[in-house]
Amino acid sequence: MSKQVVLLDYGSGNIRSAERALQRVGADVTVTADFEAACNADGLLVPGVGAFEACMTGLKAVRGDVVVDRRLTGGRPVLGICVGMQILFSRGIEHGVESEGCEQWPGTVERLQPEDAEPVPHMGWNTVEAPDGSALFKGIEDERFYFVHSYGVRTWELTDTRDSVTPLVTWTTYGGDRFVAAVENGPLSATQFHPEKSGDAGAALLENWVRSL
């Protein structure tokens, strides 16, 4: 039986390509902002593109922050992608403006600071440093994934873990600047890169997630 996945439609995100990517790996996908549907699906995918503050405004408008919190309280899986990952952290700082996030993880989303005169945004294919035991990256640890962003989480601040589960943090570097590429923390997972734009490697990652639901 296909897993039921809600792709949260809150006005920010690469909705159609994410929908196709999930369908490609066998998920039964519903694109909606409906509160009950989002709470009750086997899996919830939270996309996100653009500015941190705008994404949070859109998310709160459909009570998406409440959906995420309710699902995680019940141990129900959530996957955030790109800015959909960033808004899971405590705060974002863009152009000197500080905005509150969902506060599922402590930490600050800030502008990348490449040391090697690389341009920002970071746009293109990059490898990642997946930790041992990663379920998301099983079988694709050495693959490349597609990034397009100017901001990221450069310091992992979580000390108290959810339900005594030790988070698995995947890192990558750009121009010598190290930042979080993905997190797996019990039912809550997220990627800074776009799996839906990452070809076969991205499809394999989404398939790993859908199989876990």
Rank of each mutant, 00 (worst) to 15 (best):
K3M: 12
Q4A: 14
V6I: 11
G13M: 05
G13S: 05
N14Q: 02
N14F: 10
R16N: 11
S17Q: 03
S17A: 06
S17I: 05
A18H: 07
E19L: 14
V25R: 12
A33Q: 15
F35C: 02
E36L: 10
C39A: 00
D42H: 04
L45W: 08
P47T: 08
V49L: 07
C55E: 07
M56G: 04
L59Y: 03
K60W: 09
V67H: 11
V68S: 08
L72E: 05
T73R: 15
G75T: 03
V78Q: 03
I81S: 03
V83E: 03
I87K: 09
E94F: 01
E98F: 01
Q104Y: 08
W105F: 15
E115L: 15
A117I: 00
P119L: 10
V120N: 09
T127A: 14
G133Q: 08
I140A: 07
E143M: 09
R144N: 12
F147C: 04
G152C: 06
T159M: 08
D163Q: 13
S164W: 00
T166L: 07
P167N: 10
V169A: 02
W171T: 12
Y174P: 02
V183N: 04
E196D: 10
D200F: 00
G202M: 01
A204K: 15
A204E: 13
N208A: 05
